[in-house]
């Protein structure tokens, strides 16, 4: 969708299609998508609406550590995970407090250990702390706030990633398309049967 097509133009096309009685629904969805894309394009680079610049850098680094880019696919940053969290925090005081509190806890903990805040610490220092708070088995009065925060952060980063275009491609989900007939590839059936207790056929 080119950016200079106006919303009015799209609505006009949709109305025409609806009047012709053929494409109503598809046209409506087409307009919805095109308008969403245009709004996004018009925004330019994302500016956090809730987090301050330091919190934003820290949040971005954390989501990148949770779902990094690798040779298989891009990571959480390309999927807009920090933006997703920023949006929700802007509209939810409870969630926002959890995030600012969690980010502040991480900074304090890093300073106590390494004399630096989280985002400015060396990568191995960052992962050393995450290796503690990423596991329930390390639960202790000292680490509990970090463990609880990381659990939320991990879930929401994972959610943002796998509901994005790049995350969906990473999983290889191939649906959400119309088909006239439903079929299952024989290759997939045989793959599963061979590996199952029932054996291939």
């Amino acid at each position: 969708m080119s950016e200079n097509v106006s919303r009015r133009q799209l609505l006009y096309e949709a109305a025409a299609a609806t009047l012709s009685g053929t494409l109503g629904v598809q046209a409506a969805q087409h307009v919805h998508r095109a308008v969403t894309q245009q709004r996004r394009a018009a925004r330019g680079p994302y500016k956090p609406r809730y987090f301050n610049p330091h919190e934003w850098r820290t949040l971005a680094r954390l989501t990148d550590l949770i779902i990094p880019a690798d040779e298989h696919s891009p990571g959480a940053l390309a999927a807009g995970a920090p933006e997703f969290i920023d949006l929700l925090c802007r509209h939810n005081v409870e969630l926002a407090a959890m995030y600012t509190g969690g980010l502040a806890w991480l900074d304090r903990e890093m300073e106590r250990r390494y004399g630096k805040n989280f985002v400015d610490a060396a990568p191995e220092q960052q992962t050393a702390l995450l290796d503690l708070i990423a596991y329930r088995k390390n639960d202790s009065p000292e680490l509990a706030p970090g463990i609880r925060f990381f659990d939320w952060l991990r879930k929401m980063t994972v959610d943002a990633y796998y509901t994005s275009k790049v995350g969906i491609a990473d999983l290889g989900y191939q649906g959400n398309v119309g088909m006239t007939e439903f079929n299952v590839p024989e290759e997939a059936i045989q793959y599963a049967l061979r590996r199952s207790p029932f054996g291939g056929e």
Binding site: L65, I66, I67, P68, D70, H72, S73, L130, A134, Y135, R136, D151, R154, K155, V158, D159, Y162, T163, G167, I168, D170, L171, Y173, G175, N176
Partner: peptide, 23 residues
């Protein structure tokens, strides 16, 4: 299924950790 919010929380619980291994 089409990926959705919450679909991989079970994986987060069972695998914990982060990074490439979680992915």
């Amino acid at each position: 299924p089409m990926p959705a919010i919450g679909m991989f929380h079970g994986a987060c619980q069972r695998h914990e950790g982060y990074g490439r291994r979680l992915k």
